[in-house]
Every structure is written in structure tokens, then in C-alpha cells.
Amino acid sequence: MAALTGFGLDPVRREQLTTEVLGKALDWVLSGSPGAPPPGGSAAGPPDTRKLLGAELDARGLRLGLERSYRMLARLAQRGEERIELVERANRFRPRTWV
């Protein structure tokens, strides 16, 4: 997230850009990550250091990042209907948990 702060974006635009980037990354991961280096053969570092805008580069981490970002957008929303829609989007991306 700090990487986007330096561009002078207001909080709403920063979160909108974050959701766009994380959403595309999630699509890429779910499609099998075409073009990704093989596991263990990456110059990007060990799996625990590979992050995108604060989110781990796996389906669960990206879903958590999207959920967090949509909830932040909901907090920043001006209208109640918009806030509700953003919370519903956050809930759709939330990783499934089993109790």
C-alpha cells in the first residue's frame, strides 16, 4: 500500500486501484498463473516474501487483500447504498472458512 501513497492519490482512488490490481492478480492465480516461474526457482524470493500491495500472492492472500480493500472503500463511501454494495463485494471475496 505504501507504494501507491507516493503517487498522490486520494484514499478512494488508491483503494479503487488496489482492488483493480488485486482482482487481476487473483484472476491470474486462479487461471493457473501462466508465465509464473516454477516453485522454488523464482528470483522474487521465498514464497513468504512475495506480496502484492500487502497481500500474499496466492488465492487466499489476494482474497483477504480484496476483502480488506473493499471494506476500506465502504468506510469511505458517501452514500448508504454504495456502502452496502461494497460490503457485499467484500463478503464475496472473503476466503471460505470452515468451522
Rank of each mutant, 00 (worst) to 15 (best):
M1L: 10
A2M: 08
A3H: 11
A3F: 13
A3S: 13
A3D: 12
L4Y: 04
L4F: 04
L4P: 01
T5S: 13
T5E: 14
G6C: 00
G8P: 03
G8R: 03
D10I: 04
P11T: 12
P11A: 12
V12G: 01
R14H: 00
R14I: 00
R14T: 06
E15F: 01
Q16T: 10
L17D: 04
L17Y: 00
T18I: 03
T18Y: 06
T18Q: 05
T18G: 00
T19Q: 02
V21G: 14
A25V: 05
L26I: 00
L26K: 04
L26T: 07
D27P: 07
D27V: 08
W28D: 01
S31D: 09
S31G: 06
S31H: 00
G32N: 00
P34L: 10
G35Q: 04
A36N: 12
P37W: 04
P39T: 07
P39Y: 01
P39S: 03
G40T: 04
G40K: 05
G40L: 06
G41I: 10
G41V: 07
G41F: 14
S42M: 14
A43S: 15
A44N: 08
A44Y: 03
G45F: 00
P46F: 12
P46V: 15
P47D: 11
D48Y: 12
D48P: 09
R50G: 06
R50Y: 03
R50P: 06
K51S: 13
K51V: 12
L52M: 05
L52P: 05
L53H: 07
A55R: 03
A55S: 10
E56L: 09
D58T: 07
D58F: 05
D58G: 12
D58W: 01
A59G: 14
R60F: 14
L62P: 08
L62V: 02
L62M: 09
R63Q: 13
R63S: 05
G65L: 02
G65P: 09
G65Y: 05
S69L: 02
S69E: 05
S69Q: 01
Y70A: 04
R71I: 02
R71K: 07
R71Q: 06
M72P: 01
M72L: 11
A74S: 04
A74N: 01
L76F: 00
A77D: 03
A77G: 02
Q78A: 13
R79E: 08
R79P: 02
E81M: 13
E82C: 02
E82W: 03
R83L: 00
I84Q: 15
E85T: 14
E85M: 14
L86R: 02
V87A: 12
V87R: 11
E88G: 11
E88L: 11
R89C: 09
R89E: 09
A90S: 10
F93D: 05
F93Y: 11
F93I: 05
R94P: 13
P95G: 11
P95Q: 09
R96T: 15
R96G: 15
T97Q: 13
W98V: 15
V99I: 15
